[in-house]
């Protein structure tokens, strides 16, 4: 009971997250969840191996494009400000 109360207590105060670039890593679990749900609703017949493979490919593709966008935007900012 004490452990359960402690577990519930962790949900009553926010955790500490900085505003540094590392906090952008929080987008990946969100992206992973969106990928899994998208594939789970989209695939006509759901077979585990195919589901995992297609989800990983989609996750890698979207992550790749997002990282590329970050690099391009940083380059543009660097060119403008330098």
């Amino acid at each position: 009971m004490h452990d359960f109360s402690l577990m519930l207590a962790t949900f009553t105060a926010p955790i500490s997250i900085g505003t540094d670039p590392a906090s952008m890593l929080w987008m990946f679990p969100l992206l992973g969840a969106i990928t899994l749900i998208y594939k789970a609703t989209k695939m006509r017949v759901l077979l585990w191996k195919r589901f995992v493979t297609e989800s990983l490919i989609l996750f890698a593709t979207v992550s790749g494009f997002m990282i590329a966008a970050v690099i391009v935007l940083n380059l543009i900012t660097w060119l403008i400000t330098s």
Partner: peptide, 18 residues
């Protein structure tokens, strides 16, 4: 898949922001 993924996402949000 839907239950685990969406519940985990929601609970993570609650854990992070209270």
């Amino acid at each position: 898949i839907i239950f685990i993924t969406i519940t985990a996402l929601f609970l993570t949000g609650l854990y992070v922001g209270s």
